[in-house]
């Protein structure tokens, strides 16, 4: 990979300053960025590690919502969210593998917005709020298509606030090689209604399946969506599955999510 200057600030303010340098790029857990850099597809002049900032790490309950620091590793969420938001813990505990979960962070995953990443599904289905060094962004506004988000250059995700649902589940169907989500569905039932977010399937990245949300808000049972289907237009088609296959998976996994929600 190309060489770069490495800095590791210990505060958000210092990190923001460092990121204002020409060619600077943020480094979270690096589990996606490093392989990209090895292929010389990314070549930052300055790499700003965000893992040295203590107050962007950890999971805590705050006014009935679960607050997760932006630099919190997946393994930490898998463990510490278990009691409060088990479906979120399940999701975090199913990302990558244990070594990836030691390093990878929620902030890094969201900022990258890989169309096959797991976290965007939880954030969107939970109607979570993304906190940055300068503002808060509603999940519905945050994801703006494959590898695209509402973040500005140099803006850092400091935390995510998840409203805790009555019931929820994440059902992931692995792409057999990468173990990313070939399709993953997060179903969350709130007093105000049900939200369903699908990742891995659409070329536009994570999306809400509003038709299913309406049906499930009326009746939170697998039967409620049995007659629905997703159009395959705009679904990803590759050697791991056709668009129609992904549309089918989204439907099947939604039903299974409803059945297993806890």
């Amino acid at each position: 990979m190309h060489n770069f200057d490495f800095v590791k600030p210990s505060s958000v303010a210092d990190a923001v300053r460092a990121l204002s340098a020409q060619g600077a790029q943020a480094l979270s857990g690096g589990q996606t960025l490093l392989p990209t850099m090895k292929q010389r597809l990314a070549a930052p002049a300055v790499l700003v590690s965000l893992t040295g900032i203590a107050d962007t790490k950890g999971v805590r309950l705050d006014k009935g919502a679960l607050s997760v620091g932006g630099a919190t590793a997946h393994a930490v969420v898998a463990k510490e969210a278990r009691k409060h938001y088990p479906a979120l813990a399940d999701l975090a505990g199913g990302i990558g593998d244990p070594a990836v979960r030691s390093r990878g962070t929620i902030g890094g995953s969201l900022a990258n917005n890989d169309p096959s990443a797991c976290y965007p599904a939880a954030v969107l289905a939970s109607g979570a709020t993304i906190l940055t060094d300068r503002r808060s962004i509603a999940a519905d506004d945050f994801f703006q298509g494959m590898f695209t988000t509402a973040l500005h250059d140099g803006e850092i995700i400091t935390g995510v606030v998840f409203p805790i649902p009555e019931k929820a589940a994440y059902v992931k169907f692995n792409q057999p090689a990468s173990r990313f989500a070939l399709t993953g569905v997060f179903v969350a039932k709130y007093g105000s209604g049900v939200r369903v977010a699908v990742t891995g399937a659409s070329a536009n990245g994570v999306f809400r399946w509003t038709e299913a949300e309406r049906a499930l808000s009326a009746s939170f049972t697998p039967a409620a969506i049995a007659g629905l289907s997703l159009p395959s237009d705009g679904m990803i088609a590759d050697l791991h599955g056709s668009a129609a296959y992904r549309a089918n998976l989204a439907r099947v996994l939604t039903g299974r999510g409803v059945a297993s929600a806890h």
């Binding site: 169907f173 070939l182 599955g241 056709s242 296959y245």
Partner: peptide
């Protein structure tokens, strides 16, 4: 025999 092939 990947999932998508079997499903198809």
């Amino acid at each position: 025999l990947t999932p998508s092939r079997v499903w198809s």
